[in-house]
Design a protein around this nucleic acid. Structure first.
Length: 464
RNA sequence: GUGGGUGUAGCUCAGUUGGUUAGAGCGCAGGUUUGUGGUACCUGAGGUCGCGGGUUCAAUUCCCGUCAUCCACCCCA
């Protein structure tokens, strides 16, 4: 029986062409993040389970890929009557980039600047079922600022994000913004008991997906008290109207103010959101920011403003984030405020693929040098090395195949030029160079080959 | 974890109302060209019709199970 050669479910191989596309997108993201003053960070793929668990809520903990203990520890764990997952494993693959950042900050606080602005583009792993735009191994692109409670951070982080999307030629996206404290205030105002807040929020979060009636039904299923549901109803009214065109954040805030402005948490939340809008007003995020009082996020560590990028082109979110002022405190006594955003590159790549946004495929080799026979091959090496020294990307054909095969290979790799060197060329002091795009072939003096090819490459580039 | 679709050549998919040699396009290999690819023409290689069981004289086709994959839900990037 043959061994399956497919990658494990939810994991992917990237062949060179796709790898290059991904790298190009990552490079743009990195460039934008750097332009906002963020610095790079790398952390391990594996973390201790004590670092990972208890930060993402019950569902999140379930989705952490756990790594089996090794050696004697495993044997001892297996000897227990009914060993639990925690007995059998001690480490797990990172679930996101935010918790590792919190650990880093707690560990290296004295070595980091007063405000730590870091970006990280790296894979994370989640043990859930694959779906469109959902994988078990996928890259996240995070930007976070640690050390400040100012809404200037929220403004910077959303701006960087909007700028990335703009550079990738996405325009119809919205950055939904809400506030944990606003949600708490809404719940209190409606009389939802505190143990039911999370349940109610999950239902309300689906407003734009299943509509008001759907939300009411789901609230019922989740055992929310009928009086509380009745109280929530008027709060659900307004957003339907301003959801798409003409976003009027001021009106939304004013309406919320009249409803929950008298509550302490509500007042704080509205104050934050107003500042956020004011600080972001001049930046690239401004037109995309959308105050959405029904946005809820599952991750339990958020404490202040929360974000989610949505687009009509994709069912799920394209990214999310928020403020988590207490997370660092889970690792050390002295906590530090923080806020950040995670961009869902994989989903963006899926959309870019769908929209055929990758047109400009360029070869990664400029010239293929042909072989004649073993005796003559040293001459081909000399030529290849000359061309490389002149700054060209050169591939040397490995076997003494007939030219048809050598050309076919050049074609397959989309190599722009083939440099043919055989005894007659060597004797005349020339190289026969064929332009694979036009089919033209020219005998070029040996000492001018590299500059000739450089010139032709320029021309090709100009044509595209 | 729940529900649904799909599983036939390397890839994308036809097909068989159960019947004896299972097809196409693309790709691949060889040739038409005696140093030249991509276009044209010719030839060829490749399939236990996902796996296991059942019904039947007979199963790739029907039934059950299983695995894989995709989509949706939950949740999320």
């Amino acid at each position: 029986m043959a061994i399956s050669t497919k990658p494990a479910s939810g994991f992917r191989d990237f062949l060179p062409r796709e790898t290059e596309r991904r790298k190009r997108v990552f490079a743009i993201i990195e460039q934008v993040y750097q332009s906002y003053g963020f610095e790079p960070l790398e952390t391990p793929a594996l973390e201790n389970l004590s670092t990972l668990l208890g930060k993402y809520g019950d569902e999140g903990d379930q989705l952490v890929f756990k790594v089996l203990q090794r050696g004697d520890k495993l044997s001892r764990a297996l000897e227990k009557d009914s060993p639990s997952a925690l007995d059998l494993s001690d480490m797990g693959l990172r679930y996101d980039l935010t918790v590792p950042l919190a650990r880093i900050v707690a560990q290296y606080k004295n070595e980091l600047p007063r405000y730590f602005k870091r970006y990280q583009i790296a894979p994370v792993w989640r043990a859930d079922r694959p779906q469109k735009g959902r994988f078990r191994e996928f890259y996240q692109c995070d930007v976070d600022v640690v050390g400040s409670t100012s809404m200037s951070v929220e403004a910077e982080v959303t701006a960087a994000l909007a700028e990335v999307l703009r550079r990738l030629e996405f325009d119809n996206f919205r950055i939904h913004v809400n506030h944990r404290k606003l949600l708490t205030a809404l719940m209190e105002h409606a009389g939802v008991t505190s143990n039911k807040h999370a349940d109610a929020l999950v239902a309300i979060d689906k407003l734009d997906k299943i509509g008001k009636a759907g939300v009411v039904a789901e609230l019922g299923q989740r055992d929310i008290a009928p009086e509380a549901i009745a109280n929530l109803l008027p709060l659900l009214e307004a957003v339907d109207q301003n959801k798409h065109e003409s976003v009027d954040n001021e009106a939304t805030l004013a309406r919320l103010d009249s409803q929950i402005g008298h509550l302490e948490s509500g007042r704080q939340a509205l104050d934050d959101l107003r500042k956020l809008l004011a600080f972001a007003a001049s930046g690239p995020a401004a037109p995309a920011l959308f105050i959405d009082p029904y946005l809820a996020r599952g991750l339990s560590y958020y404490t202040g403003p929360i974000f989610e990028i949505r687009s009509d082109d994709f069912a799920g979110s394209l990214g999310g984030g928020g403020r988590y002022d207490e997370l660092v405190g889970m690792f050390t006594k002295e906590t530090l405020p923080a806020c950040g955003f995670s961009l869902g590159v994989e989903r963006i790549l899926v959309l870019m693929e769908e929209r055929a946004m990758f047109q400009d495929e360029v070869s990664n080799v400029d010239v293929l040098v042909t072989l004649w026979n073993d005796e003559f091959t040293p001459n081909s090496f000399v030529l290849a090395n000359e061309l490389r020294a002149a700054g060209l990307r050169v591939d040397l054909y490995p076997d003494n195949d007939k030219y048809a095969r050598q050309f076919k290979y050049a074609d397959q790799r989309r190599i722009s030029f083939v440099a043919i060197l055989a005894p007659s060329e060597l004797e005349e002091g020339v190289v026969a160079v064929k332009n694979m795009l036009s089919g033209d072939q020219e005998r070029v003096a040996r000492d001018q080959v590299s500059s000739w090819i450089h010139t032709q490459l320029e021309k090709n580039r100009a044509c595209q």
